[in-house]
Design a protein around this nucleic acid. Structure first.
Lengths: 188, 188
DNA sequence: GTCTAAACATGACGACCGTCATGTGATTAA
DNA sequence: TTAATCACATGACGGTCGTCATGTTTAGAC
């Protein structure tokens, strides 16, 4: 049962996409190689024709998800509004890989960690462009501070089993970021 | 081989302490019941005299760690300085359980999640006391925004395999929080 | 059209984990 | 001092997971 070249390419894409979603939803360790292959429409045996090990898949899936980042809105406030939404909080499988898997990545391969670090660098650069202020160093500070706030607020909002508290965390974090940016413009 | 009443109490304390450290260091799933019992100086068989299941242990260990929070410094800036330190970044096993396990807790028992939510509520209250500003609602916003920034910055700093970038994340997040508090005092 | 190599399904393997049954020896209450 | 209880060690059980060997089928080259 050989398969066409295009089919192979699409299978690889499907495996990566399935792994990316499953890992974000359940974490690296709770997802089985068999789970990923089944979700990709295959059986577990073919896996090792695509990746050398589960650890390799983790690194590849992370790099894949991080490569296709969401488009950057005009400014940081718009980005925060979209990121800190209830829809994003509910959609772990399709949401930010840093908020879902950031804390777990440290314990895996150096390639997985390198992929995350690369994503962090690119995200800081992207957010710097959308930050207010003339001084590049100030914009970089806003980018790092805002990104930390966004990731942390999403983790906290997902922790809370009290919907009211969870909503408040999202709203207050949005306001907190807005307060920073607003202050920026008002400064001499 | 019975054991004295005090020994039982100390064993329980040792099991919880070992579980708290191991979970923070390796995550819930990578830690074995046997690992915890060995670290507590016992063998795996006695575990089910103390807890009904591993899931129960997770909830109890989380509640235990969250109950003994670090003392609140005078103001939010001092707290951020201590939290966003290189020492804390390195000490996963003894550090903040939210930064280490927050994202994973969602996938476990409702008791574990409730313990985390309770910890979040208490932390917001604690940080509100150290926040600047006269208006209680503004102080609460500073507490939530700062806490999100602290947790997120620690996650990001631990992700980076580039020490320079990791240090910068900690420093910029500290400055970002300080900018908020500083602005606060200067406002009319 | 034939041959070959490759992709995937099936199935099996060793290892490990959570859990529980049983035995044993010390503690505590009488 | 003795009897009954209880905490823990030992060991075993299903179940599951990552990985690999093998067989089967078909795409692609000649």
């Amino acid at each position: 049962m050989k398969v066409s070249r295009e089919q192979v390419a699409e299978n690889r894409r499907r495996i990566l996409a399935a792994a990316g979603r499953l890992f974000r939803a359940r974490g690296f360790e709770a997802v089985t190689v068999s789970d990923v292959m089944t979700a990709a429409g295959l059986t577990h045996g073919g896996f090792y024709g695509y990746f050398g090990s589960k650890e390799d898949l983790i690194a590849a899936a992370l790099a894949d998800v991080l490569a296709t980042a969401s488009p950057m809105p005009r400014d940081l406030d718009r980005y925060a509004e979209a990121y800190l939404s209830a829809a994003h909080r509910e959609d772990r499988a399709g949401g930010c890989p840093v908020a879902a898997l950031g804390a777990e990545t440290i314990r895996h391969s150096s390639k997985a960690r390198a992929a995350m670090t690369d994503g962090l660098r690119r995200q800081i650069d992207r957010l710097s462009e959308g930050a207010g202020g003339a001084d590049p160093e100030t914009r970089r500070q806003s980018a790092i501070g805002s990104w930390a706030t966004l990731v942390g607020a999403m983790v906290l909002a997902r922790i809370s089993d009290d919907a009211k508290l969870s909503d408040e965390v999202l709203a207050q974090a949005r306001a907190w970021i807005g307060r920073q940016n607003g202050d920026e413009h008002n400064h001499p």
